[in-house]
Design a binder for these strands. Structure first.
Lengths: 117, 117
DNA sequence: CTTTTATTTCCATTTCTCTAGAATATTAGA
DNA sequence: TCTAATATTCTAGAGAAATGGAAATAAAAG
C-alpha cells in the first residue's frame, strides 16, 4: 500500500459516521449487512448513508454486492490489514529491539505469509 | 479507546501532510525529530507544519518536548497501538475462527499484556 | 406493465479544513 | 540587554466535505 491509498483509507475512517459503519461491518464479519439494515442500526437517512458507503468503497475498505433488491456490504479485511501494515512499517528504523509498535512484527509476518499464499 | 478518540486520530492521519509527518516520526523511533528538521525533510513552511503538529498532538499521536530552543517531537506508540486495537476489536463478532483480521488476536494480546505491566 | 421496495444520485446549504504570510512568543548566546 | 534562531499563533481566503430532502434508478413481485 502506498501513502496515497493509506491517506484515502484513513480519511474515510476519520469521520464519526463512517467509522461507525465500518466498525459495524467489521463486527458483522464476512456475512456483511444490508444497506437498509445499517441505516436502521445507526438511524441514518438513506442519502447520508449512501454517501458514506460510497466513500468507504472508494477507499477500498468495504465492498457491496447486489442480493435481490438489497445490497450487502462487507468490510474488506485485506485492505484493513494492508493499512495496519503501512502504519507500523519500519517502525524505529526497522530495529526489532526498539519494538515501539508490538503489532509491527506479527502483523508484517502474517501479511507476508498471506501474500505468498 | 473510545470512538471519539479513534475518529480524532484517524482524521489526523487521513491527511497527506500529517500522515507523512507521522510516518517520519514512527520511523525515527523514540528519539524523535526536531520540528525544523521535519520541516526541512518535507519542505513545509513553518506555519503549515506547526498547524499539522498541533492536530497530531491534539489527537494524542505525537508529543513535543522542548530541548533548548528546539522542540523534539516523537510518535506516541501507545496511542497508535490502542488505535489498531480499536479498529480490529471484536472482528467477526469475536469468533476466533473467522480470523478476518489476523492482527486482531496478536495485537489484542500484546496490548493487554502491556496494560497489565 | 404497474407497483412496491431498496438504494442511489442530484442538489443546495452549511460547516469544517488547509494553507501560508505576517506578527508574536520563547530560548540561547554575545 | 540586544540579537539571532526556532517555533507558534493569528488571520483570511480558497477549497473540500457533510447533510438530507427530493427525484431518479433498479430489481422483484403482483
Amino acid at each position: 500500500m502506498e501513502i496515497k491509498d493509506a491517506t484515502l483509507a484513513l480519511a474515510a475512517l476519520g469521520q464519526a459516521t463512517r467509522l461507525s459503519v465500518f466498525r459495524l461491518l467489521v463486527e458483522a464479519g464476512p456475512e456483511g449487512r444490508m444497506a437498509g439494515d445499517i441505516a436502521d442500526a445507526l438511524s441514518l437517512p438513506g442519502a447520508t448513508l449512501s454517501f458514506h458507503l460510497k466513500e468507504l468503497s472508494a477507499a477500498g475498505l468495504i465492498q457491496g454486492e447486489q442480493r435481490g433488491r438489497f445490497i450487502c456490504y462487507r468490510a474488506d479485511f485485506e485492505t484493513m490489514n494492508e493499512l495496519i501494515t503501512f502504519l507500523t512499517r519500519n517502525c524505529c528504523g526497522g530495529q526489532p529491539d526498539a519494538a515501539c509498535l508490538p503489532a509491527t512484527k506479527k502483523v508484517a509476518e502474517k501479511a507476508t505469509k498471506r501474500a505468498r499464499a
